[in-house]
Design a protein around this nucleic acid. Sequence first.
DNA 1: AGAATGGCGGAATATTATTCGGTGACCGCA
DNA 2: TGCGGTCACCGAATAATATTCCGCCATTCT
Lengths: 164, 164
Amino acid sequence: MTTEAFKIDKINRRILEVLQLDARISNIALADAVHLSPSACLERVKKLEQQGFITRYLGEIAVTKIAPLLESYAEVTLSNHRPEDFKQFHAAVKAEKAIVQCHKVSGRYDYLIRIAVRDMAALSRLTDRLLGAGIGIAKFTTVPIIENPKPFGGYPLEELLDGA
Amino acid sequence: MTTEAFKIDKINRRILEVLQLDARISNIALADAVHLSPSACLERVKKLEQQGFITRYLGEIAVTKIAPLLESYAEVTLSNHRPEDFKQFHAAVKAEKAIVQCHKVSGRYDYLIRIAVRDMAALSRLTDRLLGAGIGIAKFTTVPIIENPKPFGGYPLEELLDGA
DNA sequence: AGAATGGCGGAATATTATTCGGTGACCGCA
DNA sequence: TGCGGTCACCGAATAATATTCCGCCATTCT
């Protein structure tokens, strides 16, 4: 046998649900939450990590408490849509630390990127730099974030798995 | 003095930078990375948590490996902009598990929300439900995510703090 | 200078993670 | 139906880590 198809049963789903929102829970507490012994629970978690079902553990930082922060999205449209145009843009995006995330989307624009800078001046400098970098950006519309009424609350695994 | 202004020195910045992308690093390894003894390091981490500089630890799940997933953004415009209209919308958003995140923004629309459902049919049902819920949505434009060229890579704390 | 404060390192202890058999349920197959 | 074989589990033993505690500077304030 080669790579085994993995089974996401009810227990693994529960484990993922918990870890998704509390990555640093102790294995003992997690085991308790899913009604398993610590050893059995740990075995499952390790397997979930190794097989790539859990990719990373992230710490959420209250950036606004330590520094000025203007977070915003930007809608990006490229001038051309050849494979090399996309590649070029991807490379530029990855190199830019202020661009903290990038989605390729389907709709009125090609990409939706998330930007973290100190203030409008820095945002302005960034857009100028991107537009002047010759990476084929035809249109660049920034959408500043004012407030976050609902912070990320995890994926609804039950619905996605069972098919709500 | 009551609540002490907290100092984010170089070491704390480093701690945050590390934890941001590797929340489950052991305290010993973290201490090593920031050139502190485990006890001193732990003391700082605890303080950062207590004072709210670290808000949560999240596990990143490869949802697409375990279930069908259509993730998308949606641009939302409300019909009216009275305080109660916003409140009503916020409440609806929080109650909807498929809406995993919600930003209030400044631009052509009022909100940018992130949605996780199984497929187009589910997305369609969701939009119908939201539009029919009488929560004052005037316009609702979905923007499906095709690809993620740059996953979240953490905030550029150095730039934000030192002022790039 | 002297005392108070705060952060540090290192040792001791408590808690947790990890390893390691042993067991029972389930499955395929004769 | 009975016989391995496999797999996931549990519980105990061990290893590693987290956490506490205390004494020690360095800085600051008086």
